[in-house]
């Protein structure tokens, strides 16, 4: 359960974002807060700038914390189907979902057409807050014209004022192309997320050609949390965790966080869904990993009910 203060802060952030958007303020000032104050405070403007394009790299090919031996374990990231990994997809879906709700505008997702390969799966996206019913999938033939056509589609989509978020799985990207995207996002006001399926070798950040994206993130999987309730067997998977590296951001400094997806809609004790929609990001708190078994931690049995029923 997030603390009350946390919720308040989140609400304030959202109200502020709505006000910024509604007052006809300059488009490039609008922001999409991630809902985690530690990150939002670090980002210039209090969140991801909308009317702009951001990049999300896939960190699972070369997680920095891994040994060199581990690094060579995944010589070809392409084997994952040339699609972004689960964590990158989830992170993008969570951002897109937040924007979808804040702007009540649909999400466009541009991806190569890979017959028989992995594809976006609505029920999974929904658990990260992205409503699949309000999503338009754009499939671009994965031929030699892919990059050109996908960039065209992304530019068109960003330029359209009706669109909230445009996610695009594009690997190659020149400086000119990314400038065009940035310009299109400024015109349309939406949030552009470039998911780059393959992050190149070691010194990745410098190896990638420069481009005009406002920020560049790298998301990798972290061993997940143990189940929350103390009585659950520890071998069960808990909430997913990611390492979120902000590699660069315009007007800010790089930083790394350990993020956890707090699925408020999922009753973590039973694993079954309650009626609430999906939850949000949270920082991994080192405390929660070693829950102190306390008798008082369990909900006391409300005996008041019993009186009422007996009469």
């Amino acid at each position: 359960m997030p603390a009350e203060g946390d919720i308040l802060q989140r609400l304030r952030g959202r109200i502020a974002a709505i006000e910024r958007a509604g007052n006809g303020a300059r488009a490039d000032q609008a922001c999409l807060p991630l809902g985690v104050s530690a990150i939002d405070d670090h980002l210039p403007g209090g969140g991801l700038a909308t009317s702009a394009v951001h990049e999300i790299l896939d960190g699972d090919g070369n997680n920095k914390t891994k040994t060199t031996e581990n690094k060579t374990k995944y010589p070809v990231r392409r084997k994952f189907g040339e699609s972004p990994s689960g964590p990158v997809t989830a992170f993008a879906a969570a951002l897109a979902g937040r924007a979808q709700q804040a702007r009540a505008a649909p999400v466009i997702w541009i991806a190569p057409r890979l017959p028989g390969r992995e594809s976006l799966y609505g029920p999974g996206l929904l658990s990260f807050g992205l409503d699949p019913a309000d999503l338009v999938i754009v499939r671009v033939a994965s031929d030699s014209d892919f990059t050109k056509t996908a960039l065209w589609a992304m530019e068109e989509a960003l330029r359209a004022p009706a669109v909230g978020v445009v996610c695009a799985e594009i690997e190659e990207m020149g400086l000119t192309a990314s400038r065009r995207l940035q310009l299109a996002a400024k015109t349309g006001g939406g949030l552009g997320l470039l998911l780059r399926p393959v992050s190149r070798d070691a010194s990745e950040d410098t190896a990638l050609p420069p481009n005009a994206s406002i920020s560049r993130w790298r998301i990798s999987a972290l061993p997940g949390a143990p189940p929350e309730a103390p009585w659950l067997p520890a071998r069960l998977p808990g909430q997913p965790r990611w390492k979120a590296e902000l590699l660069r951001v315009r007007g800010g400094r790089p930083k790394t966080w350990q993020l956890e997806w707090r699925d408020d809609g999922h009753d973590t004790d039973t694993g079954r869904n309650s009626s609430q929609p999906a939850g949000g990001f949270a920082l991994v708190s080192p405390l929660r990993d070693r829950p102190v078994p306390q008798k008082t931690a369990r909900p006391p049995i409300p005996h008041a009910n019993r009186q009422a029923r007996a009469n």
């Binding site: 992995e118 594809s119 029920p123 999974g124 929904l126 658990s127």
Partner: peptide, 26 residues
């Protein structure tokens, strides 16, 4: 086309148990 994002809890999208955001077609 659907307009606003509204997710009824009994929608067939809503999985009873966690589902992955990416599913292999094959």
């Amino acid at each position: 086309p659907k307009t606003a994002a509204n997710t009824p809890s009994d929608s067939p999208w809503k999985p009873a148990l966690p589902r992955p955001p990416r599913l292999l077609t094959r």
